[in-house]
C-alpha cells in the first residue's frame, strides 16, 4: 500500500515565505515564478507525483493556506 497526496494552495493568501518548501520530505513543492496580486511568489506543487499527503507543509504554514488530501492506493 502506498500513499498518494495532493495539496490545494490558496494562492492569493500565500505570502511565499518558503518555510513549507524546506519542510517537504518529498521535494514536491516549490515557489512559483509568477506572483499573486500582492507580489508574492506563491506555493505550488512542482512535482505532484511525489506528494504523499504527509501534511508537513500545511502544519508549518503560518497563514493556513494549504489544504491537504490523501488516498491509500
Amino acid at each position: 500500500m502506498a500513499l498518494r497526496g495532493a495539496i490545494v494552495v490558496d494562492t492569493e493568501r500565500c505570502k511565499g515565505c518558503g518555510v513549507c518548501v524546506v519542510n517537504c520530505p518529498t521535494q514536491t513543492i516549490a515557489l512559483s515564478k509568477e506572483v499573486n496580486s500582492k507580489g508574492y511568489n506563491f506555493l505550488y506543487m512542482e512535482k505532484p507525483e511525489n506528494c504523499t499527503g504527509c501534511t508537513n507543509c500545511a502544519t508549518v504554514c503560518p497563514d493556513a493556506v494549504i489544504t491537504v488530501y490523501r488516498v491509500k492506493i
Binding site: K15, G53, D63, A64, T67, V68, R70
Partner: peptide, 25 residues
C-alpha cells in the same frame, strides 16, 4: 485525490477568513 472525503488537513473554521497582517513566515 482532491475530493472532500480525502481531506486530511485544512484551515479550522475557528480561524476567520481575514488575511493575517503578519510578515511572511
Amino acid at each position: 485525490i482532491i475530493k472532500p472525503e480525502n481531506k486530511v488537513y485544512g484551515k479550522t473554521p475557528v480561524l476567520k477568513d481575514a488575511v493575517l497582517h503578519y510578515c511572511p513566515g
